[in-house]
Design a protein around this nucleic acid. Structure first.
Lengths: 132, 132
DNA sequence: CTGTATCCAGTTGGATACTG
DNA sequence: CAGTATCCAACTGGATACAG
């Protein structure tokens, strides 16, 4: 029983190990809302309610939860203004901006390849897949 | 009650709408294993058991399920060889390879920025966060 | 070896109600 | 406005058993 090791030539990490930093980053982005929030803040600061309206489908709970997580990881800053009622503004930190532009590639990929994905899915569903 | 619209200047899509293609792509990648499988297959074809051993932590069920999804979307091909016992090989399609190299950026980002994320997290947890 | 099927615990996430 | 708290349904995903 040999162990497979795939070490990154530069960092020495093995991305496939549980302890690899990539896992933590992947886990952070791998939910329905995080990437969307990062994208939404790319164009600049937004208030809570603006984010909520812009990202179709987020519940208040999930938006709050997502923003807390991003804030915790230093990707987003939260600024409270003592107005009545209170105003809260969110923006990307430099770190958040760099991650955001990194995953921006996915967005571009989606636009250019979604037709192929859809076609493949249709073919699969009416062929090798469900033979119903 | 005005609606916020953020149309992509080139595609005319609004990424923040539920129907936007990006959502579907995001949803496909946004689980614990998909990205890892795509990465694992970047270096070439692998058998089921090789994938399983390489990706630390996947259960058989999840690996199968993830591979089926990838196959369905035309990102991975599955080849069965009638050996005894049976051999199954998985490889990336051109489409899968292009997505894989797109999200490769996340992996690189993780290696270069994980320290900042960890530091921010520690600071948050011992400060503004849990005041315990 | 490469699955499929089933059971079940744990997590996710929406709806709702309430607060400063 | 920007949350927090609670309840609960639905989904995720691991463990186990079995099959071609």
């Amino acid at each position: 029983m040999e162990t497979i090791e795939v070490l990154d030539p530069f960092t020495g990490y093995d991305i496939f190990k549980l302890a690899c930093p990539s896992r933590r980053v992947l886990d952070r982005i791998a939910d329905r809302w995080t990437a969307l929030v990062l994208f939404a803040l790319q164009d600049g600061t937004l208030r809570f309610s603006e984010l909520r309206r812009r990202i179709e489908g987020v519940s208040q709970k999930m938006l709050t939860q997502t923003l807390r997580g991003l804030e915790r990881d230093g990707l987003v800053t939260r600024q409270v203004f003592a107005t009545v009622p209170v105003t809260v503004e969110y923006s990307l930190t430099p770190l958040g901006a760099s991650l955001s532009s990194t995953i921006q590639g996915i967005r571009t990929w989606a636009y250019t390849h979604i037709d192929e994905m859809d076609a493949a899915r249709d073919a699969y569903d009416s062929g090798a897949g469900a033979k119903a």
